[in-house]
């Protein structure tokens, strides 16, 4: 195997499985707005700090008894937060090219007049040109409406 092909294989493997070990001392990110950091692994604990989405924290491990509480540190803020407030990757900000790269909030964009979701102009133009059935367009627009009506629960998915 040549050096070039070895590098290609290595690159493909790296693409397939990006390293994301979560070990004590590793970095994680806050995903929930106004995430409370408590002084103990208990919902009744005292709030020692409030973190925001995208904040990078050092993960110190799950509490031995209350496993849904995980110890985190960010600067002087040290304490426990719910596992569901943590994310493996820093959230990317979607940027609008037409506004010179201004960041957008997907939800805000969707609810603004710019999107009025229920499909973008490109999709509707294509549907018209291809004479896509009206009920299909309506169905997808309905699904978009349902999606917009669903809010993510801060306590995570699995109950």
């Amino acid at each position: 195997m040549t050096r070039a092909s070895s590098l290609l294989v290595a690159a493909c493997l790296a693409l397939a499985l990006p390293a994301l070990a979560v070990k004590p001392g590793g970095k994680l990110y806050i995903k929930t707005k106004d995430t409370k950091v408590l002084d103990k692994a208990d919902a009744k604990g005292k709030v020692v700090g409030t973190l925001q989405p995208g904040d990078e924290v050092v993960w110190q491990g799950a509490d031995a008894k209350e496993k849904q509480f995980h110890a985190v540190e960010m600067g002087k803020v040290k304490g426990f937060t719910l596992q569901s407030n943590l994310s493996p990757s820093k959230p990317q900000t979607e940027l609008l090219a037409r506004d010179n790269g201004a960041p957008i909030d997907g939800k805000a964009f969707a609810s603004s007049g710019a999107a009025t979701k229920a499909l973008n102009e490109a999709a509707l133009k294509a549907a018209g040109k291809k004479q896509t059935k009206a009920e299909l367009v309506k169905g997808l627009a309905t699904a978009e409406g349902v999606a917009a009506s669903v809010t993510v629960e801060s306590k995570g998915g699995a109950k």
């Binding site: 995903k31 989405p53 994310s87 493996p88 990757s89 820093k90 959230p91 990317q92 900000t93 979607e94 957008i104 909030d105 997907g106 939800k107 964009f109 969707a110 999107a115 979701k117 997808l140 699904a143 978009e144 349902v146 999606a147 669903v150 809010t151 993510v152 629960e153 995570g156 998915g157």
Partner: peptide, 19 residues
């Protein structure tokens, strides 16, 4: 959508308009 949007909130692109 409840399941999908919860997952998407943990993704690299939580700000996309997920459907």
């Amino acid at each position: 959508n409840r399941i999908g949007k919860t997952l998407a909130a943990n993704s690299e692109r939580p700000g996309l308009d997920w459907t």
